[in-house]
Design a protein around this nucleic acid. Sequence first.
DNA 1: TGTACATCAGTGAACGCGCGTTCACTGATGTAC
DNA 2: TGTACATCAGTGAACGCGCGTTCACTGATGTAC
Lengths: 228, 228
Amino acid sequence: MVGIRERARAEHILDIKRVAGEQLSTSGAAGVSLRAIARELGMVSSAIYRYFPSRDELLTALIVDAYDSIGSAAEQADAAVVDRNVRTRWIEVARSAYRWAGEHHTEYGLIFGTPVPGYAAPQDTIGPATRFTTVLLSLLVDAQRRGDVNAAPTTIRPDIRRELASMRARLEIDIDDQLLAAGLLSWVTLFGTISFIRFGHFTNVIEDCDTYFEHVLTHLGTSVIGFA
Amino acid sequence: MVGIRERARAEHILDIKRVAGEQLSTSGAAGVSLRAIARELGMVSSAIYRYFPSRDELLTALIVDAYDSIGSAAEQADAAVVDRNVRTRWIEVARSAYRWAGEHHTEYGLIFGTPVPGYAAPQDTIGPATRFTTVLLSLLVDAQRRGDVNAAPTTIRPDIRRELASMRARLEIDIDDQLLAAGLLSWVTLFGTISFIRFGHFTNVIEDCDTYFEHVLTHLGTSVIGFA
DNA sequence: TGTACATCAGTGAACGCGCGTTCACTGATGTAC
DNA sequence: TGTACATCAGTGAACGCGCGTTCACTGATGTAC
């Protein structure tokens, strides 16, 4: 049986994070203020310290939530593909990231934008941070196992092969050099494109960014990774 | 003949921007403070207003300087290639961006990171912002004119061809769909890679980022753009 | 079932700090006749 | 060449504001016997 206090506590934490998220959207990470949150929630500013020991810890919680949010969006998008076709899965997962970035503009900036100087991401953020990438990786592993890839081979220099081998060992995955390199490049291009679109670098360059994103997606899936 | 006042004024503006740049590196855009700058320079805080009408204008000046700085780095890198070989030019220009981002970490974050909420980039920033891209574009124009490209053709959907045509008209450049699309993708991947490296997303993923960057560069030049 | 004690949530005042911006002012540097 | 005036740089005080964090406290909710 869950006590009244425990439930109230969980609710208050949610409330604080919700208001903090609103401040994040309106005025950025620097604009998140404990006093303003307390004011908004009708409490006294010192009461916040019952829930978060400091402002930095609250920011960390927001970062963790953002990673979890985009990670679970990707997991759901992947799980929703019933026939498990890897090309379709890639497209759905990539789209989910694009959509998430559109719906959570500031949270996206928080995790993929300028790092806050002096703020060192604590250990707690590492797990959630890898959640999205794990979806991508397991997709590639499946593609490899099923043999559903046939990209034109590109030249990979020995020093990069060494780097890829070390990555393979560290992540304990079974993906060959060709596919791993293509996956890495696609991962970066995916978020590079999303950032350029969401951060406004395509202003006066591309008019219909949604369409362009779809084009990049298809291109990466077909020509770079080479899904069947 | 340049008056004493005029020269002193120009020097003071440089001083203010220099100190502001130092603050930018230490504490980010939010940490740039007029009062702290004045303190550092031994003036009274209100004196700053003789040089910049507001804090926002100072920030704008920093952004403009950053764009100018990376732009001129690219121009110099391009100009230094004596044989005008387009592949070499691409590599040198891309490298200059990577190097610049490494030497100007915070300035890079300022222009390619999270946009400051509520801060709308004024007209003054548009010119300097295009300086880097102009170098890349003229490189592509030359490649096209000299016929120094032979990439494997990729499929480009009609709606994207329309987008490319409109871009061609707006920028008044003569680059065909194939090359323009490849250039666009390489541009995004270039900065996507730089951002991932500089913003720390390759921690626990890639060990030797410098080498990986070189690999991406070669790959883009060879397989994506297809320089001869 | 009732009582005694421990835990927790929230209060209110205070500390010590920094910030952007305005304004009336003094003195020095430039300019026009 | 000298004088009268206009422009500019810099001063110092003030306005009004917000912030994170600490601390001793009250009162309510839970727990153990």
